[in-house]
Design a binder for these strands. Sequence first.
DNA 1: TAGATTGTTAATCGATTAACAATC
DNA 2: TAGATTGTTAATCGATTAACAATC
Lengths: 214, 214
Amino acid sequence: MDNAIKKMDRPIPLGVVKRLPVYYRFLTGLMKKEIERISSQELADKLGVTASQIRQDLNHFGSFGRRGYGYRVKELQEVIAYILGINQRKNMVLVGAGNLGKAIANYSSFREKGFFIKAVFDNDPAKIGTVLANCKIKSIDFLEEFLCSNNIDIGILAIPVENSTIIAKMFEENGVKGIWSFAPINIKSRRNIVVENVHISESLMTLSYKIQSE
Amino acid sequence: MDNAIKKMDRPIPLGVVKRLPVYYRFLTGLMKKEIERISSQELADKLGVTASQIRQDLNHFGSFGRRGYGYRVKELQEVIAYILGINQRKNMVLVGAGNLGKAIANYSSFREKGFFIKAVFDNDPAKIGTVLANCKIKSIDFLEEFLCSNNIDIGILAIPVENSTIIAKMFEENGVKGIWSFAPINIKSRRNIVVENVHISESLMTLSYKIQSE
DNA sequence: TAGATTGTTAATCGATTAACAATC
DNA sequence: TAGATTGTTAATCGATTAACAATC
């Protein structure tokens, strides 16, 4: 499939990348309903965007439809999965086994998409040794050692803000490729590592604004 | 303070609204360090944006700085809080007391900002009657009744996707002003209610893309 | 006053939308 | 073939950046 995907000369706008998972989710839903084809117009109507935008977004990566016909749902879903790296095994470690960490670890749909939690770390002696997501929770003291001897793609930060910077640094220095952070702080992407911050509390403030401004 | 905030003739771009919480968080940090003034340039440097953007963003709402001086940290923080509706009491109900619901309920900083969970609902008999965030968990059967007899601003959806649409509708029909949804589905804003979707799994896919494209 | 920095207008840039020839 | 819908170019729109007069 690789040769059907455009080599990207320029970086893809972040807005485009953030829409791909939306398309992916919807297409997966269509597949479950055994719908085989869809036009950009139908897709746009369902998602509340324009057909132009969908076609432009896809055009960054290649041509995946047929004129006069539209897109084959399964094919397009697979192409987007490929672009996003879904189903291409990613090994993750989870740091922080609080409620949020537990919620993440138990979210089975990640595993189905190829994202596997290989180890869980925490600094709470009461949690160490208990089991989460098939992993015996380890002391944070063993994190660095574990990273050195295992090929980890993604480090998940589900710990309070105080410790997040030092753990992020440890990820960076030990070959982790990306950080998925839930700490209320902006961890910056650097040369060796990319970061996706999930700012839950900022999202509540955005909602609060929307309510006010009604 | 109200009269210092511009009456908004046109809706504020969502991008602007989403940056305000970032500014707010940073300014709160400065306050803790007892820093009293800051220029748009300094702020921009720290946040990795341009000074122009910060001044433009604020300009949507009014003039809060002094030429030749910059901004008083406390004043600007308070103005942004006011714009976002922080510290203006919001009553919330939480639907779903799984790990994610628990994580949200225990996140104390919401309460400090004026967001209070007034009741928690779940459909699991094992959970009903237990206590979370000072609330005895109620059966989902009592949700509608509760919404009718209490003034609820925000409904939090922390349940599987199957049930989320029906609960969202119940929120809408019973005077809830906003929905904060963690379900992997796009709940649409309607005439009477605004929605903020937190798509955790989409964020992981975005990270996955960033890793691939390195 | 001189220096600094805002508020705001103007210029630029990029993203979205529209249009249409290509073609299934 | 005729109709439909893409891929892609061109036009539009909006957001970001630059510039600078106002003024603290």
